[in-house]
């Protein structure tokens, strides 16, 4: 399973976001605010989900902010961290 598919499955299950796996979902849509509507509590959960499923912690919040923009940016960030 590629990173993006694994990420979407984990977020759909743990944040109760079935629309992530719906056909036609825009992987560039913002995760927070007007997009998927996530908020600060979801952000904390997101950090935990990534730690659980991909084995690393996001400690730099500035880095995290950029990474959390969309599914595509987060997926790319995970691939980058895993390759380091």
């Amino acid at each position: 399973m590629d990173t993006k598919t694994k990420l979407k499955k984990a977020l759909a299950d743990e944040l109760n976001l079935p629309e992530l796996n719906a056909p036609g979902f825009d992987d560039d849509a913002p995760l927070f605010g007007e997009g998927l509507g996530l908020d600060s509590l979801d952000a904390v959960e997101l950090v935990i989900v990534i730690q659980k499923h991909f084995g690393f912690e996001i400690k730099d919040m500035d880095e995290g902010k950029t990474a959390f923009s969309s599914i595509n940016t987060l997926s790319a960030y995970i691939d980058k961290r895993l390759s380091e």
Binding site: L41, E45, I48, Q51
Partner: peptide
């Protein structure tokens, strides 16, 4: 299952 560090904040809330 996940340990203290990965306990779900949503379940906690």
């Amino acid at each position: 299952r996940d340990g203290d560090a990965c306990t779900s904040p949503i379940h906690f809330a």
